[in-house]
């Protein structure tokens, strides 16, 4: 299968801290990739470099054969690479529905529809439906219909996460990068939420990269796992392979436990 996204030799330093150290990863079309690693291992830096928020110091990123390394976030988004955020980035003073309509508006504008001189109601490209129908359809698909007219700032955390992801869908991305889609969601709900997201997203044949700390969620949903440690990818393979890799066990899975132990120990000190 052909790679839709190819990151080669990515390096990024913040002063003395190395956030990305020779990252190489080719992502195949129509695959689901889980990104794991402790906090600060370089997962979000990787996503930030692909989506143009950070420019790598060295290395190249190709998307469908095209070099996107130096493009601005909005241009990368227009090409079909969309992302969600660890902390949902919403229009806080607007309702869920209005949030969707803003996103759809941008898509319309980028397609040259619905401008100052155009007549009649424009159809959203890809959906070929009017904006309102697309907005309501997506809210429905992510189980957000009941929150339609609530302001984003008063929505519960999990709902904000879903709205954040639903917003990325208006542009019909080809690649979707989800930064901790289930963080802030209770352990019992994680699977249900991921199930819903994957169903909504995979129906469109979207390539998905997601950051996740829960290894059960990773092995259930990912077809391939990239394990990050100290700015490097230390394992790359199927979930069984990656999660059983001794280095991963020591630095990622074990590291997670180790970190928990530390946190438990702290209040006593």
């Amino acid at each position: 299968m052909a790679a839709i996204l190819d990151a080669a030799g990515l390096n990024k330093n913040f002063g003395a801290v190395t956030a990305a150290n020779d990252i190489n990863a080719a992502i195949e079309r129509d695959s689901v990739v889980g990104l794991i690693g402790t906090n600060g291992a370089g997962k979000t830096t990787f996503i930030n470099m692909i989506t143009g928020y950070l420019k790598p110091d060295r290395g190249r990123i190709h998307y469908e054969g095209r070099d996107i390394t130096r493009l601005a976030p909005r241009d990368i988004t227009r090409l079909g690479i969309c992302r969600s955020f660890q902390i949902p980035q919403l229009y806080a003073s607007l309702t869920a529905y209005e949030n969707m309509m803003i996103g759809i508006g941008v898509v319309l504008r980028n397609a040259g529809r619905g401008g100052f001189f155009s007549r009649g109601e424009p159809l959203v490209p890809g959906y070929e439906q009017p904006a309102a129908a697309v907005a309501d359809g997506l809210l429905q698909r992510f189980g957000l219909a009941e929150y339609r007219d609530k302001n984003a700032q008063v929505l519960p955390g999990g709902v904000r996460k879903l709205l954040d992801i639903a917003l990325t869908m208006v542009a019909r991305p080809k690649i979707l990068l989800l930064d901790e889609p289930t963080s802030g969601v209770s352990a019992e709900e994680k699977f249900a939420i991921m199930e819903m997201i994957m169903k909504a997203v995979r129906a469109e044949g979207i390539t998905v990269l997601f950051v996740e700390h829960d290894m059960e969620v990773v092995s259930r949903f990912a077809e391939r796992v990239l394990a990050f440690y100290d700015g490097r990818i230390i394992a790359d393979g199927s979930p069984e392979q990656a999660l059983n890799d001794p280095e991963v066990k020591r630095y990622v899975v074990g590291g997670e436990l180790h970190r928990l132990d530390e946190e438990k120990a702290r209040p006593r000190a």
């Binding site: 989506t51 601005a72 976030p73 909005r74 241009d75 988004t77 227009r78 969309c82 992302r83 955020f85 980035q89 919403l90 229009y91 806080a92 003073s93 607007l94 209005e98 309509m101 803003i102 996103g103 759809i104 508006g105 941008v106 898509v107 319309l108 504008r109 980028n110 619905g114 401008g115 100052f116 917003l167 990325t168 208006v170 542009a171």
Partner: peptide, 24 residues
């Protein structure tokens, strides 16, 4: 009423999201 005009409250609320929706 156009998409660009409607972007105003979005710019006020969250410019990062505006960028990541593909608008400047």
């Amino acid at each position: 009423g156009t998409p660009l005009g409607r972007l105003a409250p979005a710019i006020k609320d969250n410019e990062i999201r505006v960028e990541y929706m593909g608008a400047s």
